[in-house]
């Protein structure tokens, strides 16, 4: 039993250190993603409306240079699209410009990647797949080992037979009560 506890202690300590960074990635992004319906967790977005001189409606190949000339954009243009007879969209690396040709009204929509949060979400949601799938699986395995070895670290009143057992029971009870209430009541 002594050797078993020693192994548990070693595993828990060493893997515990390894898990710190990954836990922060998943925990921070977890909170963020839980509230994704309140805000855009990956991008900061902004809209700006201004006017340019109206453009006479005609063939797209004539309209595009006229609009670009009026817009005087500093950014490189990715592409353009005639969304409707009266609308031209100009796509830029950081957003879209929508021009109403007849009125000259311009809607400039910008997005900017949220530093850090975008990357945390990218990892948490495994957007990139590939090697991260293996790392995420390994991390889940590490968490299982941490949970199981943690049970045997403390002996006596504060351990599994005492307060530790009660707290562990609470950890099982919370998801159990939630799922029963949500799904079966």
């Amino acid at each position: 039993m002594k050797t078993f506890r020693k192994i548990c202690l070693w595993l828990h300590r060493e893997l515990g250190f390894v898990a710190v960074g990954l836990t922060l990635v998943y925990a921070i992004s977890g909170i963020v993603v839980n509230h994704a319906h309140h805000w855009d967790t990956n991008y900061e977005r902004s809209r700006e409306v201004f006017n340019i001189e109206p453009v006479v409606i005609g063939p797209t190949e004539e309209i595009v240079p006229a609009v670009l000339q009026r817009l005087q954009l500093a950014e490189p243009v990715k592409s353009t699209w005639r969304a409707a007879q009266d609308k031209l969209q100009v796509f830029l690396p950081d957003g879209t410009v929508t021009v109403t040709l007849s009125t000259g009204e311009v809607l400039r929509e910008r997005f900017r990647v949220r530093p850090l949060l975008f990357d945390l979400n990218f990892m948490h949601l495994n957007t990139g797949k590939g090697p991260w799938t293996g790392i995420a699986d390994a991390y889940a395995g590490v968490l299982i080992i941490l949970a199981l070895t943690g049970i045997f670290l403390v002996r006596g009143r504060k351990g599994l037979a005492g307060r530790g057992g009660v707290l562990m029971g609470l950890g099982f009870l919370l998801p159990l009560v939630y799922i029963i209430m949500e799904r079966y009541v």
Binding site: D119, G128, K129, A138
Partner: peptide
């Protein structure tokens, strides 16, 4: 014990470095 810990840390770092490619996916 120290050697084992080092191996563990290095294995983790190797995994993480490989993951760097994920961000630069095609």
């Amino acid at each position: 014990m120290r050697t084992k810990s080092c191996i563990l840390v290095m294995a983790t770092l190797a995994l993480l470095l490989t993951a760097g490619n994920a961000a630069a996916l095609e």
